[in-house]
């Protein structure tokens, strides 16, 4: 003779089994999504790496130097182009004291 508690146990097991079945496919679906996201990340990383290589190719010193000379009329820095900050301060003092006037 089967009693109510036993029925409850059987239904409980069936309920858990069905839930687990659904969870399994839910998880699998999520894992597929996750794997696809990971794949997208890898592809994006690969694209970024190519862009990084291209950027470094474009900013290589010989190219920048050529562009700076040809397009911007720049030239290498000479010692006379470099000033010490102290010299600038003393120049300011001279101007303030009216010595240049």
């Amino acid at each position: 003779m089967i009693r109510y508690p036993s029925f409850s146990f059987v239904f409980f097991i069936i309920f858990i089994a069905i839930s687990l079945y659904q969870i399994k496919y839910f998880i699998l679906k999520r894992e597929v999504e996750l794997a696809k996201i990971n794949q997208d990340i890898m592809l994006t990383k690969s694209d970024i790496n190519i862009l990084r290589a291209e950027l470094n190719y474009l900013k290589r010193p010989d190219r920048i130097e050529k562009l700076a000379i040809e397009k911007l009329n720049m030239r290498p820095i000479l010692p006379i182009d470099i000033w010490n900050i102290e010299d600038l301060v003393s120049t300011q003092n001279i101007i303030n004291n009216g010595e240049l006037l």
């Binding site: 699998l28 894992e31 597929v32 996750l34 794997a35 696809k36 794949q39």
Partner: peptide, 10 residues
């Protein structure tokens, strides 16, 4: 088998 199922599907 966290990844195996998913990678198989992909």
């Amino acid at each position: 088998n966290k990844y195996d199922e998913a990678t198989k599907v992909i």
